[in-house]
Design a protein around this nucleic acid. Structure first.
Lengths: 171, 171
DNA sequence: GACGATACGGAACGCACGCCCCGGTTGGCA
DNA sequence: TGCCAACCGGGGCGTGCGTTCCGTATCGTC
C-alpha cells in the first residue's frame, strides 16, 4: 500500500471515530470525508460501504469491552452488572455504542453471546430473575443506551435496570 | 365540506391508522395515499403536513390513555404502574405509540405532565425511588416501548422496569 | 528524471421521500 | 340541466444521502 494511502486511511478512521462518536451512525458520509480532508471517493477506496467503515471503528471497542468480561469474578451477579455498567458508560460517552447493536449484525451477535454467558451464570447463582433471556437483555439495553442520549440521568436509569433485574420482588 | 371530500378524508385517516400502527411514523406518505385509494395531493388537501396527519391519528388515543389515569386509585403506586402497563400494552400492539413521544412535542408534553403527577404521588407515598424524575421516566419508557418491537418479551421487560422503579433495594 | 501503477477528489447518478402544482373532473345548488 | 366552485390525481420539484465514475495528480521504481 502506498504511503499517502495509508495516511489517508488513518485520517478517515480518525474523522469517523470522532463523528460517529458524537453524532452516531446517521452522520452523512460526506461530512466524515470533508472532516478527514478527503473526497467521498477516497473513503470508498478504503471501505466498501458506510457500514464497513462504521464496523471498523466500533468493533475494536466492542471487542475490548467483551474481553473485559472474561476476567473471573467472585460474584457472577457483579460480573454481569459490571459489564452492563461498562456498556452504559461507553454509550453515554460515545453515541456509536448504541448504534453498533443496530447496525452491525456481527457485533450484535457477539454482544448477545457475551451477555448470554454472564446472564446465565448470574441466573444459576440465583441473583437474577430467570425469566429474562439474553435477547430480552440485549433489547432492553439497547433501549436504555439510546435513552442516555436524550437527557436522562445515566446513573439512575442504569440503577433502575439493575435493580429490576434482581430476582427479589417487591416487599 | 363536500360529500366525497369527507369520505376521502375518512379513507385517509383509516389508512393512516393502519399503516402508522403497523409500520410507525416512517411509512412513506405515498403508501398511505395509495392504500386509501387517493393521490398524495389529496392527503395534503386535508392535512397540511405528514406530522399533522400523524397527530390527528394518535392524539385521541393518547388523550384517552391519559384520561384513564385520572380515575382515583387507592394506591398511588398501583395507579402509576397501571398507567405504565397500559402504555406498554398500547405500544406493543401499535407501533405509532412510541413514535408519538418523538414526533409530536405536544403529545410528549401531555404524557410528561400525566406521568409527572402519577410519579410524584407514588414517590410521596414512599413506593417509588425518589431520584427518578418525570423526564427520566418518559425517556426510559420511550426506549422500552421502542424495544418492544424488536422481539423482546413485553411482560418481562415491563416487569423489570416496574421492579426497578421500586424504592426497595436488593437484599 | 521518466514512466506506469496507484490513489485522489468531486462531480454526477440513483433512489427515496416530503411536498406542491395544475389540468381535468365531480358534486351540489339554482 | 347547466354552471361554478370545490376537489381530485399524479406527475414533478427540491433535498439529502449512499455510492460510483473518471480525468487528474501523486507516489515509487528503474
Amino acid at each position: 500500500m502506498r504511503a499517502d494511502a495509508a495516511r489517508n486511511r488513518e485520517k478517515v478512521l480518525e474523522a469517523a471515530r470522532e463523528l460517529f462518536a458524537s453524532k452516531g451512525y446517521d452522520v452523512p458520509l460526506d461530512e466524515i470525508a470533508s472532516r478527514a480532508g478527503v473526497g467521498p471517493g477516497t473513503v470508498y477506496r478504503h471501505f466498501p460501504t458506510k457500514q464497513a467503515l462504521f464496523q471498523a471503528v466500533t468493533e475494536a471497542r466492542v471487542a475490548a469491552m467483551i474481553a473485559s468480561a472474561e476476567q473471573p469474578w467472585t460474584d457472577p451477579k457483579e460480573a454481569l452488572f459490571a459489564f452492563l455498567g461498562r456498556m452504559a458508560d461507553e454509550a453515554s460517552a460515545k453515541r456509536d455504542m448504541s448504534d453498533a447493536i443496530t447496525v452491525s449484525p456481527e457485533l450484535r451477535k457477539n454482544l448477545h453471546a457475551a451477555l448470554g454467558t454472564l446472564l446465565h451464570r448470574a441466573q444459576e447463582a440465583g441473583s437474577v430473575r430467570t425469566d429474562v433471556t439474553a435477547t430480552d437483555l440485549v433489547i432492553l439495553m439497547k433501549g436504555m443506551l439510546q435513552s442516555l442520549h436524550e437527557g436522562g440521568n445515566p446513573a439512575v436509569l442504569l440503577e433502575i435496570v439493575l435493580n429490576g433485574l434482581q430476582s427479589s420482588r417487591k416487599p
